[in-house]
Design a protein around this nucleic acid. Structure first.
Lengths: 181, 181
DNA sequence: ATCAATTTGTACCGATCGGTACAAACCCCG
DNA sequence: CGGGGTTTGTACCGATCGGTACAAATTGAT
């Protein structure tokens, strides 16, 4: 019925809301409106394949909407600013969890380690490149890019822990200033 | 046989390694060496009580070893430096996960929300107080304290994601400089 | 309209889940 | 040595887990 892309979106929400272990097939079936038959027809590999495809979908979205623009921007400073816009929108000011970060913290890290590593490594590399092209030297660019990604992840944790999206927004605002300086 | 405190330590490791849902009673039984009978004798409330007590134990450790020293230090700058020592040792340069942060990201946040909020709020408050007493004004102290806790959490995520403890160490070193400036 | 191929719902599988019941083993105080 | 209270292992509970089998329903090409 609904397309495969939409199904992946709903799957992502289920994994975000309940974690990998907590996302039972019953829950997944309810959330997607698909019976077990349909699910195993779409994803013969079961839950593991669903999670892998969800991670790949997220990775693709970041590649298209953040990494590629950062790499190819003619005006890197604007691209960095646009990245912050995209990050604030995507993570809904910390109300929405970073699924890749969650996987990195959890026991599924081993299974999806390569995907997780690539997602973050490419983020940092693309951002560092843009910062460098905006006038910084290599070492500073690398350090700043790493710090920005660290703070995005940490701000999600803290905003959720304190149940206060303002924590996330404050961190992003401070980072924007720092990145533009 | 072994004391209750040691049992809580092993419980914490199991929760860290497998998450709340993934920490089955079979796993817990194996890791603690205690049968179900003993476990439910020690923790009549089952898994939920185990997790709550583990969080309380962690909270108590941070209170005693980080928050209280930060609050009561005669030389606040030294206390902040000591906090970084303790943090690097406790989280093993990002190899060890922050269980409270993991809970904040996961579906158990609702159940343990109050404990999670208190843990982070008190950390930030104690740190902000020390920073203020070391010569900064209130606003700067609060912002810096929040940023430090954000970066600690984010550095754990990124160090695990990239499987590179140096990420964590670099972040801590940079924060020490910033806090001492 | 027909028929092969795909998609779907449902019944079912063994395994494991968190939790309970309870009797045997153990401990400690007399 | 005795005996009351606690600690322990084990058998067991219903529910749910991820996954499979398979027949009915649906689809698409001709």
């Amino acid at each position: 019925m609904t397309g495969r892309a939409e199904t992946l979106q709903r799957l992502a929400e289920v994994f975000r809301a309940h974690g990998y272990e907590g996302a039972s097939l019953a829950l997944i079936s309810r959330a997607t409106g698909l019976g077990k038959g349909s699910l195993y027809n779409l994803f013969p590999g079961g839950k593991a394949e669903m999670a892998a495809l969800v991670l790949a979908e997220i990775d693709g979205w970041f590649e298209a909407n953040l990494y590629a623009p950062l790499r190819e921007a003619k005006q890197p400073a604007e691209a960095v600013s646009a990245m912050f816009d995209a990050v604030e929108a995507y993570f809904r000011s910390g109300r929405r969890v970073c699924l890749v970060g969650v996987v990195a913290l959890g026991p599924e890290r081993d299974r999806f380690g390569a995907a997780v590593r690539s997602y973050f490594a490419r983020w940092i590399a693309a951002l560092a490149g843009a910062l460098e092209r905006s006038g910084r030297n290599t070492a500073v660019s690398n350090a700043l890019a790493e710090e920005i990604v660290v703070q995005v992840q940490g701000a999600i944790v803290l905003a959720r822990a304190l149940d206060d999206p303002a924590v996330f927004s404050r961190a992003m605002t401070a980072l924007r200033v720092k990145a533009a300086a």
